[in-house]
Amino acid sequence: MRGANPCKKNKRIKDQTGKKYGRLMVVGYAGTNKHNAALWICQCDCGEEHITSTYQLTSGKSKSCGCLNRELAANRMRKNHRVTHKMSGTRFYHIWRSMIARCEKPKTNGYKNYGGRGIKVCEKWHVFENFMNDMHPEYLNHAKLHGEKNTSIDRIDVNGDYHKDNCRWETMSSQCSNRRKTKKYLIDNRLLSAAQVSREYNIGITTFIKRVERGWSHEEAAQKSVGG
């Protein structure tokens, strides 16, 4: 039973609840395996749930839900130049590398405006193939209309992180315009940015903006429930 303390009934089982092993935080007991070894429910730093045994945790064999091994494998591929996507010489690949650099490498030009402000790249996009799967089709469409050199990645919420729901392709002129002036919405006699609306009214930025675009009033878009 999840969350039950096994130590009260079985003194041989040492409770692991609340302990941290690598990226895994133990949150509850999950019973035993076929070898009668205690199993534990763990929450990984990436958000995934993972069940593993006491031995796997205490021996260091389980340090994450599997995301750590995937990241290490991706890093090894990059270091050994075993690139299989054949995109390393493209502008699209350069956009991805620049995005990672300005958010994570303090010596990179522009870091203070991105990583220095707490802007991050979602964990999924640390693997180039994932970024390519999410963003490359629309990149090609935009480049066909405006040209590759005039195709730049843009965040809908300028204070938000880089992830699929918060990114789009824009021309350089449109992106500069977005940076100069953030659109404001009148709610309760206050002018708020979409990011402020999201924080104060606990609503997704994309959901709010799409409601406004469909003709909802700013107050209705911010306050009305999804099912309303």
Rank of each mutant, 00 (worst) to 15 (best):
Y21W: 06
S177P: 07
R214Q: 07
G147T: 04
F131D: 00
K184E: 03
S152G: 02
D134N: 14
G147S: 01
G116A: 03
K210R: 08
N80C: 00
E138I: 02
S198Q: 10
G116W: 10
E220N: 14
Y114Q: 01
G28Y: 02
Y114S: 04
I209D: 00
N133E: 15
K183N: 15
T182M: 07
R23N: 12
M99E: 05
A37H: 10
K107Q: 14
G28V: 04
Y29F: 10
W125E: 11
C42E: 10
S152Q: 12
I100E: 11
T182K: 03
H85Q: 11
G204K: 11
N69W: 04
T182I: 09
A221G: 04
R82W: 13
V226R: 10
C44W: 12
R190S: 12
K112F: 09
G116P: 03
A38F: 02
A38G: 01
G18T: 09
F208Q: 03
Y93Q: 07
T32V: 06
G89A: 12
E200N: 00
E138M: 06
I13D: 02
E49L: 14
K120I: 14
I205F: 05
Y201K: 04
T182R: 07
V83P: 04
K34T: 11
Y201C: 03
S64G: 02
D134K: 10
R23F: 12
K8L: 12
C65W: 11
L140Y: 03
C65I: 07
K224L: 01
Y114L: 03
T90A: 13
V26W: 06
N133T: 15
A221K: 08
G110V: 09
A194P: 00
R76G: 09
V212G: 00
W40R: 12
W169Q: 05
Y139Q: 06
K63S: 08
K124N: 06
G89E: 15
K19W: 05
K19C: 09
G160Y: 01
E200A: 00
M25L: 13
R117M: 11
L72I: 15
A73I: 04
S225W: 05
W216C: 05
M132Y: 14
N178A: 06
E213K: 06
C65Y: 11
G227I: 13
N133C: 15
M135Q: 09
T90L: 13
N109H: 14
I119L: 00
G228C: 02
E200F: 00
C65N: 08
D165P: 05
M87G: 14
I95E: 13
L192K: 10
Y29N: 04
Y55E: 14
N159V: 06
L68Q: 08
D161V: 10
W169V: 09
G3V: 09
A74H: 00
D157Q: 01
M1E: 10
I153K: 05
G89P: 06
